[in-house]
Design a protein around this nucleic acid. Structure first.
Length: 154
DNA sequence: GCCAACGTTGGC
DNA sequence: GCCAACGTTGGC
């Protein structure tokens, strides 16, 4: 059982956007990085939990939890010339990019900011807190997951 | 809005 | 296969 962290820019797609979808469920499209793609395509499983992280905003940090509710499948937005995530190199018979469906679980009682996450030695191995990190999908170790949840009520 | 850090592209 | 140029990410 893996845990994950998913980044999204709240100006484009926040956790409240997901929450407003029918059944509070949506596909996680637009990942266009190979390392992130490999995590999705090769390792994500139905039922696994992910932190929802807001990036590139006034207070970057973890804001909630979502659950993976589909197996990985080709990201169809790559096939659509009118989509911002269109990639002509991805073809339906040989897809380059993958996604999963996620289901809103809950928001955290408070945003656990990047600034705070950087303070703890328990989390210093997370790619998220390392300098220059740009990975938008990353695994979270079980002890990191539990530690971060323990901060929620602190 | 700035800009450092990073991943990708493509000429050679 | 190298690496400079380029575009993007994302904190600040």
């Amino acid at each position: 059982m893996n845990y994950w962290l998913l980044k999204s820019e709240p100006g484009t797609y926040s956790i409240d956007h997901l929450r407003q979808y029918p059944e509070q469920r949506d596909h996680w499209d637009g990942v266009r990085n190979y390392q992130a793609r490999n995590f999705i395509r090769d390792r994500m499983k139905i039922g696994e939990l992910c932190f929802f992280y807001h990036s590139n905003c006034s207070c970057p940090g973890i804001v909630g939890i979502v659950k993976i509710v589909s197996t990985p499948y080709p990201d169809f937005t790559a096939f659509d010339p009118d989509d911002v995530h269109f990639d002509p190199k991805s073809q339906p018979d040989n897809p380059r990019w993958y996604m999963v469906d996620v289901h809103f679980q809950r928001k955290l009682k408070r945003t656990i900011s990047l600034q705070e996450l950087k303070q703890y030695r328990e989390l210093e191995e997370m790619p998220l807190v390392k300098r220059g990190n740009r990975l938008s999908v990353m695994p979270v170790a079980t002890h990191e997951w539990q530690f971060i949840l323990s901060l929620e009520s602190a």
